[in-house]
Design a protein around this nucleic acid. Structure first.
Length: 905
RNA sequence: GCCGAAGUGGCGGAAUCGGCAGACGCGCUGGAUUCAAAAUCCAGUGUCCGUAUGGACAUGUGGGUUCGAGUCCCACCUUCGGUACCA
């Protein structure tokens, strides 16, 4: 009995596709091709535990689009690869001594077997791994591009995409060198250049994670713990590689606009970059030697200096309109002015506070976020708008790394300042009157009217200026504008833009990552001079040194520093002793540009052939998890823009359309995890039901983007559906797999034709809008209809096999060949429909009375309003309902409904 | 706290433009087939009232707009995700 045998069919067709190279994509489009289509999955990290059911969700979605596009005649690029550098393989090496390269190779083999088992139509000839020397050679090369680039923020230019931009990454050789630097000699010039590169070394407090034995990017630290493993993270000042992503902050925000991405992801990126526009304002520190008026007139004459004088505190504020409400100042504990301004009386307290703040880890700082702390420095600053003296405090709620590391505090109009003022009993000054429709909080409402202006509940919104001298009565926005202009004219301030985004900490202390193509110069004593040399592109790749021992050093000293001397040292042609950079790159490096390499993965001359980049990019559809909404997608865009600026790419953005698939939860509605014991293994599902059922089920569960729980009963449901499809074609009672006698070359009845055309239309439209769940339900309806029909016309079953193919390709191929077709259906033409044949000549429409459906009426599909109304009025059922009522109004929607608005007589 | 997404039968979900709420699937009930089971097929299945024709109530809650609201507006509640002193 030839039951639906998924295993037999799937093995047969997977072998066929492999042998026939069905899905290999040539770089030159076939004749008659209807344009290119680059569809990309976020490539997986090949972990030891194999594929998770979350992987096939996105991968099936892209596979459907891709198979559909091929049948539409598109020239399709659909590759797969491995994001294979990373900690787990190295941790495994520490435990077992197995080299990470070996573990990686094994894991990739498992992942590849599993992906092939699911019948995804990848062009495996384009497979790549970020750990291939042929691949990371170009990762290192791109790093050298970053190293060779500085950002010219004022450069006006038009890119190959025809868009005019301000700001461009340019070769470091074009960096203008100030004369005094040139005068100081070659070394000074080199240091000046190094300080302007997009890839630079900086000594700054970084996130050191002893548990992982590496430093982490801000993005990888969550609540003071590592994103991976949840180990505590400390702040340590270390020399690290940074990438100047902040230079691109504005472009990373503005160029989001034209992308077909979910608005929520765009917003996430905008918030992460966190652009704010405000003003920098200078406050003179009150010292015996200087007078406010003299300083002011001096400033009026000379303008605002680039860096303030040593007795001036520069603050950043987004609310310059609240300057009259500034009743104290706060500087970060690390602020360089602290030592100088602190009075002797306060010195001990300030010193103690700074010591304590320095020791606090990020975790401590967030834990104690609610309780404000701080110490008075004993110093006073003079408010430039009214000459009033206000005390200067230090507190760790002001961050040294944002703005100027100092603020003017306006407790009446800022929640944090208010909390601080409340705790230390500092005075408040209301300078913004809330608008009339402002809704007070419950606490505020309880206060008597006259108390509302000195309550401890700050008003942080926009309103009208009060207690602000000549500015009284100005609306907030106007006031901001006006005072910024006036401060600028007086040389006391200027407009300023700030970002939450920080430069990207790009070095790690691990073995299993790309080594840097950088050498450090050593002096005669073997100490680094701080000067660097880059490897020549011809020297790439920089391979990993051979190592036996993968134990972490336990200190921030990188793993690669344990390499042998022949890897670590060399003598340059000019005799200079050089030591290799021993940090490695983070896992993000490889995933920043893999979509480029897929276009041209075997190119030994360049990272991508310019013609191929022009042809294939941008990626037309990119599907992956939301977890990469800020990290991978921001980093990729940044690298892409640098390569664009340097003339290596013609597109400014890598990914045109982005879709995030929703997470699949366990059957208990919780996140799948080993510890919860609710993990579903795709291998088991395929073993029991087959790949087609797994694919179909994951698409049938619900909308792609939605979070949804797994239900094994649902897999059974789609498996039953495929069984029904099978029996619609195949003679279940025969000994061999043969077409059923009921399948005949006969014409379609009108109804059958309508069902067919409706199904083709429905499935086509649904694929176009990525609504795979409803596409499948339409195919189920087709099957329910045609299994009840005998004989069954071939002219309906042939196109149906094609409709099913993107979703369940194995069974579709089998049915196609049973229908007598010699070739794979992978490139068969997608069925077309006739819109006129999708609708019945007559439609049954509801007749409503006062909006309630009371009876049904059959009307011609194309009936106009008047016809419909008169047909309704003639209907006996309708007349019954009209009895005893008078008609006030009749609403008719052609082809949809008739509504009588009636009133009892 | 702030930002974002979402709340529809016993469950997953559908309703694409304001026009028959609950498509499709799961589950459940009854039946056919069978010695029996599995598999398969057929019928039914939002809640309440009613023998029934039928009626009332139903898309988180409360209001509103409209001939008509799951869909639009206002307020609130709940869940999930992001973020956290960014001045």
């Amino acid at each position: 009995m030839p039951r639906y045998d998924a295993k037999r069919i799937e093995e047969k067709w997977q072998q066929y596709w492999d042998e026939q190279n069905t899905f290999v994509t040539l770089n030159s489009p076939q004749a008659g091709s209807k344009g290119k289509m680059y569809v990309l999955d976020m490539f997986p990290y090949p972990s030891g535990s194999g594929l998770h059911v979350g992987h096939p969700e996105g991968y099936t979605a892209t596979d459907i689009v891709v198979r559909y596009s091929r049948m539409q005649g598109k020239h399709v690029l659909h590759p797969m690869g491995w994001d294979a550098f990373g900690l787990p393989a190295e941790e495994h090496a520490v435990k077992t001594g197995t080299h990470p390269a070996v573990t990686t190779k094994e894991n990739i083999a498992t992942f590849k077997r599993q992906l092939k088992m699911l019948g995804f139509s990848y062009d495996w000839s384009r497979e790549l791994s970020t750990t291939d020397p042929d691949y990371y050679r170009w990762t290192q090369w791109i790093f050298l591009q970053l190293f060779d680039t500085w950002y010219d923020a004022t450069c006006e230019w038009t890119g190959p995409d025809g868009v005019q931009r301000t700001g461009k990454g340019r070769p470091i050789s074009e960096l203008p060198i100030p004369e005094d630097v040139t005068a100081s000699g070659e070394e000074a010039v080199r240091r000046y250049q190094d300080a302007h590169r997009l890839a630079y070394v900086s000594e700054a407090p970084v996130n050191w994670c002893p548990g992982l034995g590496t430093v982490l990017a801000n993005e990888e630290v969550i609540d003071g713990k590592s994103e991976r493993g949840g180990h505590p993270v400390q702040r340590l000042p270390l020399k690290q590689w940074m990438l100047r992503i902040t230079a691109y902050a504005d472009r990373l925000i503005s160029e989001l606009d034209n992308l077909d991405w979910p608005e929520s992801v765009k917003l996430l990126q905008r918030n992460w970059i966190g652009r704010s526009v405000g003003a920098e304002v200078d406050f003179l520190v009150a010292t015996p030697g200087s007078t406010f008026d003299a300083w002011k007139s001096q400033r009026a004459a000379s303008g605002l200096p680039a860096t303030p004088e040593s007795n001036v505190l520069r603050v950043y504020t987004t609310r310059p309109d609240t300057l009259f409400g500034a009743t104290y100042m706060v500087v970060a504990p690390e602020h360089p002015l602290v030592d100088q301004i602190t009075t002797d009386a306060q010195r001990d307290a300030v010193h103690a506070y700074r010591e304590k703040a320095a020791l606090k880890s990020d975790l401590d700082r967030t834990d104690l976020a609610k309780e404000k702390t701080g110490v008075f420095t004993g110093a006073y600053a003079i408010n430039p708008v009214n000459g009033e003296e206000v005390p200067i405090w230090i507190a760790d709620y002001v961050l040294i790394s944002y703005g100027t590391g100092a603020i003017m505090a306006v407790p009446a109009h800022d929640l944090r300042d208010c909390e601080f003022a409340e705790k230390f009993d500092l005075c408040m000054n209301w300078v913004v009157e809330p608008p009339e429709d402002y809704k007070y909080t419950a606490e505020e409402l309880a206060l008597p009217q006259e108390r509302k202006q000195d309550t401890y509940y700050p008003f942080t919104g926009h309103g009208t200026a009060i207690n602000s001298g000549e500015y009284n009565g100005l609306p907030t926005a106007e006031f901001k504008h006006k005072i910024t202009a006036e401060l600028t004219a007086a040389g006391l301030g200027r407009q300023a833009v700030n970002y939450k985004l920080r430069d990207w900490l790009f070095s790690r202390q691990r073995y299993w990552g790309e080594p840097f193509p950088i050498w450090h110069e050593l002096d005669a004593d073997g100490n680094p001079t701080g000067l660097m040399r880059a490897d020549e592109p011809a020297d790439l790749p920089v391979l990993h040194p051979h190592m036996e021992d993968f134990k972490p050093t336990g200190t921030p000293e990188p793993m690669l520093s344990k390499a042998t001397a022949d890897w670590l040292y060399k003598t340059a042609d000019d005799g200079t002793q050089l030591k290799r950079e021993t940090n490695s790159m983070p896992q993000w490096a490889g995933s920043c540009w893999y979509y480029l390499r897929f276009c041209d993965n075997k190119n030994g001359e360049f990272f991508i052939d310019p013609e191929l980049e022009k042809y294939w990019l941008p990626v037309d559809l990119y599907i992956g998890g939301v977890e990469h909404a800020v990290l991978h997608l921001l980093y990729s865009r940044f690298w892409h823009k640098v390569l664009f600026d340097r003339g290596h790419l013609t597109t400014a953005e890598p990914f045109h359309k982005l879709v995030n698939q929703g997470m699949i939860l366990g059957e208990n509605n919780e996140k799948m995890s080993k510890s919860r014991g609710n993990v579903i293994n795709p291998d088991d599902v395929v073993k029991d039901y087959g790949a087609d059922s797994l694919r179909l089920y994951e698409m049938f569960m619900g909308p792609l983007e939605q979070v949804k729980p797994w239900q094994m009963k649902g897999v059974e449901g789609v498996f039953r559906f495929l069984g029904r499809v099978w029996r619609m074609y195949v003679d279940d009672a025969a000994d061999d797999v043969v077409l059923s006698d009921a399948v005949q070359d006969i014409p379609l009845t009108e109804e059958q034709e309508r069902v067919l055309h409706k199904t083709i239309k429905g499935v086509t439209d649904d694929i176009e809008r990525l609504a795979f769940n409803t596409a499948i339900s339409k195919m189920m309806e087709f099957t329910n209809f045609f299994t009840g029909v005998s004989p069954r016309p071939k002219t309906a079953l042939e196109p149906f096999a094609l409709l099913l193919a993107p979703f369940a390709p194995h069974i579709a191929e089998e049915l196609w060949s049973l229908l007598g077709k010699a070739d794979s259906l992978a490139y068969a033409a997608w069925p077309e429909y006739d819109a006129a044949k999708t609708v019945e000549a007559e439609a049954e429409i509801p007749v409503q009375f006062n909006g309630k459906v009371r009876c049904k009426l059959r009307v011609p599909q194309n009936a106009d309003k008047e016809t419909m109304q008169s047909l309704a009025e003639q209907n006996s059922e309708v007349q019954k309902h009209l009895e005893g009522n008078s008609v006030v109004k009749v609403v008719v929607v052609p082809g949809r409904m008739v509504n009588f608005v009636v009133k009892p007589n």
